[in-house]
Computed example of a mutant assay.
Amino acid sequence: MSLRATIAVCAMIILSGCVTGSREPAPPPISLDAQGIQPTISGLRIDFGRAQVGVIDTVSRLLGDGPDAITTTAECGPGPITAASWEDGLTLNFQDGAFVGWVNTDPELAVAGGFRAGMSRLEMPPVSFQITSRGTEFARSDIAGLLTEGDAAIRLLWAGRVCFAR
């Protein structure tokens, strides 16, 4: 191989490493906030109050998979809650056929306020904590969360109406 060909091959290898190495990871398909869900590929929102069937279908398309389970808890505060749960840790709550809340344990999904499930307590934005029967809880701008045993990290986050198993 000539010197010129060798240099060209080396340059292509170096440049290909730069191109593939500089790729940013794709953003998660949705982010969660106090009013519902914001798809990252669209300016349209999925706010609380939307119809259950449409919300489940849309979120399933965005996540690339449908819920693993849809269950109803009859005894839950203001009435029965139907929960659609995805394998990675997202649960959407519905009451009387309307989207009313979410619970998330998926560290890949962004949550408003700079929170993520799994985030260490030291990395969290400033919040005040309260000890409850579930453990150490916090809330900020209608986003609430629960820390892990030992208070080291965020175990789960939620907004809207939720129903925790007793």
Rank of each mutant, 00 (worst) to 15 (best):
M1V: 02
S2A: 09
A5H: 10
T6L: 13
I7A: 13
I7T: 10
A8Q: 05
A8D: 02
V9Q: 10
C10I: 13
C10G: 10
M12T: 08
I13L: 14
L15K: 00
S16E: 04
S16H: 04
S16T: 09
C18K: 06
T20I: 12
G21R: 13
G21S: 14
S22K: 10
E24S: 14
P29K: 07
P29S: 11
I30A: 05
I30N: 02
S31D: 07
S31N: 07
S31W: 11
D33H: 11
Q35I: 15
Q35K: 15
I37C: 09
I37P: 04
Q38D: 08
P39R: 07
P39Q: 08
P39E: 05
I41A: 14
I41G: 15
I41C: 09
S42M: 09
L44F: 07
R45I: 12
D47Q: 13
G49F: 06
V53P: 05
G54W: 12
G54P: 03
V55H: 15
V59H: 12
V59M: 07
L63S: 08
G64Y: 06
G64Q: 12
G66M: 12
D68E: 12
D68N: 13
A69S: 15
T73K: 04
A74Q: 11
G77F: 01
P78T: 12
P78L: 12
P80F: 02
P80C: 09
I81R: 09
T82K: 07
T82N: 03
A83H: 01
A84N: 03
W86G: 03
E87W: 14
E87V: 12
G89A: 02
L90C: 05
L90F: 08
N93D: 06
N93I: 02
Q95V: 01
Q95Y: 00
A98K: 15
V100P: 04
V100C: 06
G101T: 14
T105L: 12
D106F: 00
D106E: 01
L109I: 13
A110K: 09
V111N: 01
V111K: 02
A112W: 03
G113I: 06
G114A: 00
G114Y: 00
R116D: 00
A117T: 02
A117L: 06
G118F: 06
G118Q: 14
G118W: 08
M119T: 02
M119G: 02
S120Y: 03
R121N: 05
L122R: 15
L122Q: 12
P126M: 07
V127W: 07
F129W: 05
Q130V: 09
T132M: 11
E137K: 13
F138M: 03
A139P: 11
S141L: 13
D142F: 14
A144S: 15
T148Q: 12
E149L: 09
D151N: 14
D151F: 00
A152H: 13
I154K: 05
R155V: 00
R155Y: 09
L157Q: 06
A159W: 03
A159E: 09
F164A: 11
F164D: 06
F164P: 11
A165N: 13
R166H: 10
